[in-house]
Design a binder for these strands. Sequence first.
DNA 1: ACTAATGTCCTTTTT
DNA 2: GGACATTAGT
Length: 697
Amino acid sequence: MSDLPRIYQPKPRDVAASTDLERDFAGLNVEQQRAVVHPGGPLLIVAGAGTGKTRTLVHRVAHLIEGGVAPERILLLTFTRRAAQEMLSRAERLVGAASARVHGGTFHGTANRLLRRYGPSAGLPSDFTILDQADAEDLMQFARAAAGPGKPHEKRFPKKETLHWLYSRHVNTEIPLETLLGDELPAFVEHEPAIRAVLREYTRRKAERNLLDYDDLLLSWAMLLERGGELADRMAALYDHVLVDEYQDTNALQARILRGMVGRGGAPANLTVVGDDAQSIYSFRGATVRNILDFPRDFGGATLVALEQNYRSTPAILDVSNAVMAKASEGFRKALWTSRTGGERPWLVTARDEPQQTRFIADRILELYEEGIALSGMAVLVRAGFMSADLEIELQRRGIPFDKWGGLKFLEAAHVKDVLAFLRILENPRDEVSWYRILLLMPGIGEATARSAVEAMSAGAWAPAAFRHFAPPARAQAAHRALAALLDSLRETVAVGDGVGGAVGLEIARVRTLYDELLREKYDRPEARLADLDQLQTIASGYPDRASFLTAIALEPPQATQDLAQGEDGPDDALVISTIHSAKGREWDVVFMPWAVDGYLPLARSLATPEGAEEERRLCYVALTRARHQLYVTYPLNAYATRRGADYSLDQVSRYLDRDVRELMLRVALGDDDRPARDDAPVRAPIDLRALLGGRF
DNA sequence: ACTAATGTCCTTTTT
DNA sequence: GGACATTAGT
């Protein structure tokens, strides 16, 4: 494509890197250049969608290295590890292999790395296990049972998910517990003492079992820095420059970490943050736009650069996006512009019902494909994972390959978690949650037997023998024997395969000699689940050892099949189906946005607060601005959401597509034959009925 | 006393 | 389809 920035193109070998760098630098606009050459001290780049934010960051990294900063003394914090990798590989084309030494990753991944190294001097053993959210909630369940209110729940007590949400929210936002309870969960205010007891118990159990949840990773990092002393100085001295992408989606805790990592001892805070308040969509995780808005205050003397020239989308798409944000209630007022011209108005397609909406999208994808647009150049963006179910079936039926991003169910599936539980107790025999999970799988072992088994092991210092010598009731004896034998054989596998690539895959194979049988009994159609386990095995074989596999799977879940597919089948051409959240920072030639109805976008649940509704608007904006050339927004006229008690109909076009927005779009109605009827000449209503009605008196 | 089977409600977004 | 509560069955 001719309008691709040069930086995307492979660098000819015989051209010196610096020549490339200079030539490309000239292709940046004035604001981008300012950001790139900013010497030091805090820098805030407010970058609208598609304004070359990534390109600017890449150049800044390259510029720093060219200027003599050692690559390993640069830290690049991004939202996903993949984003970091993409930037670093682009930087490599500018300054060569040196950029590979730049430290890049997510906040959580970086916390993990630093804590394994510096934690031991602060009483945190380096072999901690990381709990993902589901694990953390399971552990919360145990804490709830142990420290919660007495057996009969006289009054409703919060469930494990709610307790975990409360804990996480408190840690990430630093809002006091009592305030959170009063504002968000007033029904549980009276339980505050019991809730505190449960959270204490939760924390105690994590410490006792050497477990860290996602929040602990950040919290420990922050606290090590804030405690001061030699350890903090050494961590802060690791980096000369810190760059943070997607700053609008960071939270208060992450801001604390940054304050600790830069500008220690009066040195200039060499911190660059990039973000767009209009794309802040992670408040449910405690992110706050305040981080961006307060940046100049938090880091004195900050330089501000605003990028507003859009290089991604056609003016027609940009106009619609801008119109959606024009009605936003707060935020930096800015409008993206482009020097390009042309482009068709985005379509607003009205379908009769969901099946017709689905058929339209599938039809259109095939048409565009035949016109020469690769499937991988198209994406379908939805508010929530379940909204693409019908489309996925249709695509499968028609043989259109697709990758689904976000809402990855693979690692959450019960059978995958079951198998992982075996690996986890090998890695950390004190992992009570995994023990329970495994024990309850076995026929003849129920809750009571599992509990006494865990107690016996705890008494026996979690040694392998403690389980072997546990005496189960008669009905559970066969199960106990089989499980003990498997665990013993797994420990042998470890001894043999230690340090050998593929050892983890072998362990999984060994686990499956027992587990596959259980799976077959439990499900009528186990094939799909068995295939998942095959895939898990393949993924695991790529890791050098069990510990790194388990850590990777908690921090950076493989993006479904695609990480795998790239190594095996080569570059498959596949359509992308993604949640809007997971589409952040990406772009496609053609974007479809189905379900543009009130209730789904905005999602009904999010409307409880005005802030929630505003975030949904930004979500809509993020989706629209992913499109380069063509944008199709669709909605069905008749659809129903089945909800407890009152089913409600989804029959209103999304409130964010108000009249001003719709006038910028091409109205298309689908007929009974599915043929799109374009209304190419939308006229403003020639008569004003309101005025006529009112004029009678 | 314990496990297995049945019934009921709910289903956002992610490190 | 899954998590949780309840009931049936051993």
